[in-house]
Design a protein around this nucleic acid. Structure first.
Lengths: 150, 150
DNA sequence: AATGAAAACTAATCAGC
DNA sequence: GCTGATTAGTTTTCATT
């Protein structure tokens, strides 16, 4: 992965629909060269996909919350993660150091929907306690930062 | 926003580079109709952008952490958010209810980079305390869930 | 690895319904 | 708000270096 690859990645992080022709003009390569490089980055697992970003509120998802998860004694972490995966409202799932074992970011239509998520989480085998923090407002999310230097 | 719009949104959340022709075949409309609808969704702020998703580790970002932020007395929340915005390592910034005022998700090259972020945060005017939780492993992130029903 | 050219496909525009 | 036709631009393939 050289400087041109990093430039392509950065451009696609900012605009995932940029055409290969446009990217070629940006980095000073032909369209086919850009296609080659991007195919390689995708195959190597560097670029993992392309997503439209959507305003949650417009989709009716008015409530965002962070939920810390404590596990029961002698519970396998990975089994719990596998079970949590079935709750599609969980957008992010991090295994963390500290008081809790997992931190989740969830989105629900409203507080009733959030209550339903918490109930379903609490009912999962291996989860002993949940600690929910409501997000009052999102200042920003998924921001594209500068690429780390060499 | 009707059922077809929601179908288009869902398809673009799963593959942000889907062509309009392909989307048209999916929903049973012509290319130009799809273009119209998507332009409308973009103008209305429902679709906010398109991003390539990238494997952080491949970019050299080996450390993810969640940082809770407590504010000094009589500090304006928004001013602090504006100051934190200059730290490009902060990918997400949520204003939250509870013990802390903000929760941040940050990414750094390594623990030294994380230390540098925490130092810079602590030095910001209006921040009294930070509470850092290291992410040991990411089970999943930015998962595309089912669209909320009607 | 990259290029240039050809073929296939897609996007954008527009008149018409 | 959708369609179908036109034009311009893009992607893909491939022979060549």
């Amino acid at each position: 992965m050289d400087a041109v690859d990093r430039q392509l990645i950065q451009a696609l992080r900012e605009n995932g629909r940029a055409s290969y022709a446009e990217l070629g003009r940006l980095v000073g390569l032909s369209g086919p060269s850009v296609t080659d490089r991007i195919n390689r980055l995708e195959s190597a697992g560097v670029i993992t996909g392309y997503r439209a970003t959507v305003d949650s509120a417009s989709l009716g998802l008015g409530v965002t919350a962070l939920i810390g998860i404590s596990l029961s004694d002698a519970t396998d972490h990975q089994d719990v993660a596998d079970r949590m995966r079935s709750l599609t409202e969980i957008e992010d799932c991090w295994f963390i150091a500290g008081d809790d074992s997992y931190m989740l970011k969830v989105r629900a239509n409203d507080v009733d929907g959030l209550e339903s998520i918490i109930r379903r989480l609490s009912a999962l085998q291996g989860i002993s306690r949940t600690r929910t923090t409501i997000v009052l407002s999102t200042k920003w999310e998924d921001r594209v930062g500068a690429l780390p230097g060499e």
